[in-house]
């Protein structure tokens, strides 16, 4: 079926990793991917959540093509 113009394609949405239970070295490694320096642990968890939420904003599904009969 024709994809509507100016709407991004549907992609699998990965759930947020469990940053809260990650160990410090793993948190550092995750933040390194985003160019962020090592921070106090609590701050690293918050920053990773912030990044995840910002980069995984889901558009509300619209009724036109979402509702299945």
């Amino acid at each position: 079926s024709a994809q509507k113009i100016n709407r991004p394609p549907k992609v699998p949405i990965t759930p947020m990793p469990s940053y809260s239970i990650m160990e410090t070295p793993e948190l550092k490694k995750e933040l390194d991917r985003f160019g962020v320096r090592p921070l106090p642990k609590r701050q690293m968890v918050l920053k990773l959540k912030e990044i995840f939420q910002y980069t995984h904003q889901i558009l509300p599904s619209d009724s036109e093509d979402e509702i299945q009969a």
């Binding site: 991004p8 992609v11 949405i13 910002y54 980069t55 995984h56 889901i58 558009l59 599904s61």
Partner: peptide, 11 residues
């Protein structure tokens, strides 16, 4: 199975 959705395009 991963949930499908549309991500808001970022700059």
């Amino acid at each position: 199975a991963p949930r499908l959705g549309r991500k808001r395009p970022l700059p």
